[in-house]
Design a protein around this nucleic acid. Sequence first.
DNA 1: TTAACTGTGATTATTATACTTACAGTAAGC
DNA 2: GCTTACTGTAAGTATAATAATCACAGTTAA
Lengths: 143, 143
Amino acid sequence: MNSEFTIAVHSLVLLASRPDRMATSDIIAHNVNTHPSRVRKVMSCMRKQGYIVTKEGIGGGYILNCNPEEVSLAEIYRATSIGSMKPSWCSGKVDIECMVACNMAEVMDQIFCDAEQQLLIYLQQTKINDVLERVRLSQLQKQ
Amino acid sequence: MNSEFTIAVHSLVLLASRPDRMATSDIIAHNVNTHPSRVRKVMSCMRKQGYIVTKEGIGGGYILNCNPEEVSLAEIYRATSIGSMKPSWCSGKVDIECMVACNMAEVMDQIFCDAEQQLLIYLQQTKINDVLERVRLSQLQKQ
DNA sequence: TTAACTGTGATTATTATACTTACAGTAAGC
DNA sequence: GCTTACTGTAAGTATAATAATCACAGTTAA
């Protein structure tokens, strides 16, 4: 699984947790523990999907533009990581005189693709707000 | 997803497809399109799980030791790739004074772990023999 | 006009992955 | 018992994927 998914989810949860539902890439990056530029890249994708709006210039940043109770992790996965289930490496070779060797890549591809669809069904269940709730629960259990 | 899973599945399917259900690491490696040493590493793991037996020395190799109609991809995944769903990179930092930052890794971990369990349920459906059948089907469709 | 922000491409550093080598251990066949 | 063809496994190298960083143009509030 792609870690941009993690960054996207973390960022949206963070925004959802803030009273003004807003933060700069610096704030998010520090919270996520990565580079602001990487956050901006991921957030740019979130903006294109409409989950946030951005405000450029001084006093700007990223503002949540969706209902965190409605947006599921499946949507975030689709936006950031679709296709990442399948490993880049694949077995076999088309020009080998063997049924297994020259068809395996195609067959495995289909299996990974189907597996990803199943994953999406599972991710559908969990909304941004559920993640925030889990974070709260996790926090409570530590005290 | 770990590509050792692909190698393991491919190798077992190849063995299942052969009349004597046997092949050397050289034969498998050529078919899979990788190095014999890599095949041996993966097959060593398959042997430990009992899916194959190995015969060392001259005339030796790997011999299928299971019913390909019974062994599912879930078992192969468990043997080769468990935990690979979760990306190695994780967000947040425990020592930050923010509920989201210091609990997100734990929460995402749980989500990835649950997702992997779902994946296993899906992979349970497909047996080694089903993959071989799909390969045969794929071959037929080309002609 | 300046300062604080985003957007994005390019570069570098780091890590993960795959390949290769090396060699010890094993067993069949002469 | 020696040779040859095999596996088992560790170690090293090469390559690819990922993450971090830099650079700078564009935007907007004060």
